[in-house]
Amino acid sequence: MSASRESILRRLRETRVPRHHPAAAAWSPLRYADPLGEFEQRLEVAGGSCVEIAGRDELAAALGALAPFRDAEKIASPLPEILSTWDAADPRGWAELDFAVLEGQLAVAESGAVWVAPSDSERSACFLAEHLALVVRRDSLVHNLHEAYAVLDPSRSAFGCFIAGPSKTADIEQALVIGAHGPRSLVVVFWG
């Protein structure tokens, strides 16, 4: 145990911080009449897009309708419905990846975000790929982040992430540029 640890904790314990009790009116988180519509709108604003399919057997065809997928040479996916054409032993091996398809566990309407908890090797594919598709069950859609955290337990995996659009930046004169570091496009496929 370091000396700094002890002295920081001691200083904090010697400090009496006045409790602050803001007067809060009762509130409840926003829910939507059409959560899927809200999700689609949110994701579109963030530069992503949405596809709906009835069953997993339609997944390959749905992705095949997308230009980035059709043009992709190196595709990686742990999903049985999508044939991987590329594999890497090392996280850096995904650097040339054109398209990654991953399973999302849950979608949040208010933020247009999908929760993914990729394995170590999926994790770097998820951020190195030029394009990304996330496949989510339609009935996993929740209205807002409060409902999301009521279902999720992020501590069950070393890494978990809400992804809400392609990688983007506005650091040069506030001009929005898609594809800052990671994927240049994101498509969310709802099934079921």
């Binding site: 975000a113 992020p154 070393a158 890494f159 978990g160 659009g165």
Partner: peptide
């Protein structure tokens, strides 16, 4: 911060990767 509903990536880390 920017008027977005959420940032593009909100990453949760629990321990190191393998």
């Amino acid at each position: 911060a920017t008027g977005q509903a959420i940032t593009a990536y909100t990453s949760h880390f629990h321990g190191p990767r393998e």
